[in-house]
């Protein structure tokens, strides 16, 4: 079946099989390497993508569900100026991220910042725990998210 959708702001079209998962489609056909397929079981959260601004685990989404959707991955988000806020937040909080979960954490943060710039503690904790990786401390990640939110707010205010 041929599906078309927006990937990182660009219209794309691809022929896919009904049993294909989004994570495989994006990685193999579009070379989206920021998403991982570590557990393939919705446990780790490293295959996170933004679908119509909502964070979803692409290992759980059949490829045909991407049809007409607006999909964002870190390849697209990192090309925007506002990406610097996320990097700045994590850098100033001294979070040591591993290669495997870093893009998913950035994407989860971006999803939250698109939703609100003054997130509640509960939302921040939920975002920090949406990626299940023991490489860094949850408290530090929460701190990083709040710092990123402040930087984003400042950027919006200044512009």
């Amino acid at each position: 079946m041929i599906i078309s959708f927006f990937l990182n702001g660009n219209p794309v079209e691809i022929d896919t099989m009904p049993h294909h998962r989004s994570v495989d489609l994006l990685r193999e056909s579009f070379q989206i390497k920021s998403i991982q397929q570590s557990c393939s079981d919705a446990l780790c959260g490293t295959c996170l993508i933004l679908m119509d601004d909502r964070p979803v685990l692409s290992c759980l989404v059949p490829a045909f569900e991407l049809k007409f959707k607006d999909i964002w991955t870190m390849e697209g988000i990192s090309s925007k100026k506002s990406y610097a806020d996320i990097v700045g937040g994590y850098k100033s909080a001294h979070v040591q991220l591993c290669n495997s979960c870093a893009p998913a954490r950035a994407l989860a943060t971006e999803a939250l910042l698109r939703q609100t710039l003054r997130p509640s503690a509960e939302l921040v904790r939920e975002t920090a725990e949406s990626v299940n990786c023991s490489c860094c401390s949850t408290r530090r990640v929460m701190d990083a998210i709040l710092r990123a939110a402040k930087l984003r707010e400042k950027r919006i205010h200044e512009s």
Partner: peptide, 18 residues
């Protein structure tokens, strides 16, 4: 430090599987 973190978070930093 910022550049390394930026590459890591954007998924551009190479992993063995790449």
């Amino acid at each position: 430090e910022g550049r390394t973190l930026s590459e890591k978070m954007s998924g551009r930093l190479k992993k063995p599987g790449d």
